[in-house]
Design a protein around this nucleic acid. Structure first.
Lengths: 107, 107
DNA sequence: GTCTATGGCTTGCAAAATGCAAGTCACAAG
DNA sequence: CTTGTGACTTGCATTTTGCAAGCCATAGAC
């Protein structure tokens, strides 16, 4: 399990998918933590391989895709929420969004 | 937050402290995931610096210490439990101990 | 006394992962 | 036909990891 999630950037991508409703490459890149682009590509691949994320093309020329969270990935919600609470309590300046959007799940 | 926890080995050490009641260097080393010894030393230092762990010497010659979880560290319990549940559900062969021990907290 | 073991680390170094900048590819707009 | 956008890939220097070995103090075995 920690082989998949034991890594800063992976969790961040899952968080964006799950709590912020981000779907596109550019949206992930624009997160304030500014993930390096090659790492982002790599993590999306790994997450897809691990079945936490589904990649779907919404056009062919040029190929453009969106990333959706799967049920398996969405079930990490409680973990992220607990982490958010902990961060809120102990780390000054953590901003937890007051409301989460409910992500669209695709399997 | 992920600066502290976004790393496989750190979480593993916290888990051992929190759920398995381990306190000594050798006990952490003997976990089935077999953390490299230099990494272990480094993570314990970081955890102490981050205030999740307290190091206490129980003898002087030779110096021998035990590591205790702090309140701050113990509050990660719910996160670990959620992770454990997720792992149980999705990763075959994860063994969750049927009972956790209640850790001694030192601040 | 000398050898071996134990606990808790540190050191050296090769291998892997990361971070940054730059390049690519397909198209769309001005 | 030059510029821009989105989604990546590539190259390479830096950092982190993993493995083995070494070290230090003391306790127990012979």
């Amino acid at each position: 399990m920690l082989d998949i999630l034991g890594d800063k950037w992976t969790l961040l991508v899952v968080r964006d998918l799950l709590l912020s409703g981000k779907r596109r490459y550019g949206e992930f890149q624009s997160s304030p933590e500014s993930i390096p682009t090659n790492i982002l590509a790599d993590r999306l691949k790994r997450l897809e391989a691990a079945g936490l994320v589904k990649k779907e093309f919404y056009q062919d020329k040029p190929p453009r895709a969106e990333y959706f969270i799967t049920r398996k990935g969405a079930d990490l919600g409680p973990v992220l929420q607990e982490m958010a609470q902990w961060g809120q309590k102990y780390i000054p300046g953590v901003i937890t969004p007051s409301q989460f959007n409910q992500p669209e799940i695709r399997d």
